[in-house]
């Protein structure tokens, strides 16, 4: 019953403007309207973290955000982590350390890990576990993800 709104926001550094239902989920707008399908839906209840994106620099579950609340905001998705052809140090570390197995949790995991390293450049195992606790992975048992984050942190520190 609501009128569509013109949503203006910055996604991965690019200004976007589109007509959407104000209560549409950010997840659906990213995937269906902007064709940024890197962000995944794993549960639709804010539990698995596969839909994690950075909203104004903070991690959020995009399945729990109505787009009316991101009017004028800045959103970073997994597609925005690389600089052109160059993977971010975290993305590269996930490849070399086998931090991605099936890959479905990976986009959200990378966003959460990027945020973690922004806040905490040299995390301990415990800090990584805490920082990624909202991102469920069923393949890895998390060890290889911890390895990848440590490796990227070391790279950053050097």
């Amino acid at each position: 019953m609501a009128d569509r709104i013109t949503l203006t926001l910055k996604v991965n550094g690019e200004d976007r403007s589109l007509s959407v239902h104000p209560f549409a989920r950010l997840l659906d707008v990213l995937r269906e309207d902007l064709h940024l399908t890197g962000t995944k839906e794993g549960c639709g209840e804010g539990e698995c973290g596969a839909c994690t994106v950075l909203l104004n620099g903070q991690v959020v579950n995009s399945c729990l955000v109505p787009v009316v609340q991101v009017q004028g905001a800045e959103v970073i998705t997994v597609e925005g982590l690389a600089q052109g052809e160059n993977l971010s140090s975290l993305q590269a570390a996930f490849v070399t350390h086998n931090g991605a197995q099936c890959g479905f949790c990976t986009p959200g995991m990378l966003i959460a890990a990027t945020d973690l390293l922004n806040r905490c450049p040299n995390p301990t195992d415990g800090e990584i576990r805490d920082g990624l606790a909202g991102n469920l992975c069923r393949c890895t048992g998390y060890s290889k993800i911890l390895d990848a984050v440590h490796s990227a942190a070391d790279g950053v520190a050097r």
Partner: peptide, 24 residues
């Protein structure tokens, strides 16, 4: 050898195409 996963790059870039990602 611990070779890197073939589809690793696609998976960390968000370009790996899962079924619901397929644009139809």
């Amino acid at each position: 050898a611990s070779s890197n996963r073939k589809e690793g790059r696609a998976k960390v870039s968000g370009t790996a195409c899962y079924t619901d990602d397929k644009f139809v």
